[in-house]
Amino acid sequence: MASSLVLTDVTKRYGDGPPVLDALSHRFSPGTLTVLVGPNGAGKTTLLRLLSVLAYPTSGTVQYGDLAVHAHPHRYLAHVGLVHAGVGLPEHLTAPELLEWILRSRDGWADDGPDRIAALLDRLQLDERRTNRIGTYSSGMTQKAQIAAALIADPDVLLMDEPLRSLDTATTEATVALIEDFVADGGLAVVASHLTDALAPLADDTLTLDSMSPAEPAA
């Protein structure tokens, strides 16, 4: 069961320029899906980078339960699954190998590991080419591999930046179904997406980021 993710007066600026996020306070509760909305450059990626410990706040705190996430990233990331805007997957592994590596690295490997991996990749409709190297995948296949990598270790928190990008209709529906099941099982999901039609029916909360914020850097 997930704990709450609480932002308290979080400000993030790059250099000494104006803040991209300014004294943001918000509570993400377990068993909910929050969709981040806002125009390009509003701070959605910055917020996700802060929540995934790829960026550190200028001021303010982010707590997961009683854990300060930026002071204890390893303990926090043990509960987290991530889909980044940029891909960043090792090109010379296959998707099943990558998932096995993640499971073993997180001490989650068991005898049913191969079956769990196969079932997840089946749900995401990553076909028989999953045994090819990730470097040969199309953008859609790579995105499926990223989503699988986020979900394979049964996280409590799911942070996703544009997870539905490059996905065909069937896989979009499958991914949305996976997020729905994840939230129904008590997981905490925060998703930034321009494809709001697919996610809006599921969203328990929408966090709108200000369009007046200065441009945020590339992810």
Binding site: L54, H74, H84, G86, G88, L89, S105
Partner: peptide, 12 residues
């Protein structure tokens, strides 16, 4: 390799 290291969640 930061994003991959996050996924693997190497201990300190």
């Amino acid at each position: 390799n930061t994003t991959l290291l996050q996924r693997l969640n190497y201990p300190p």
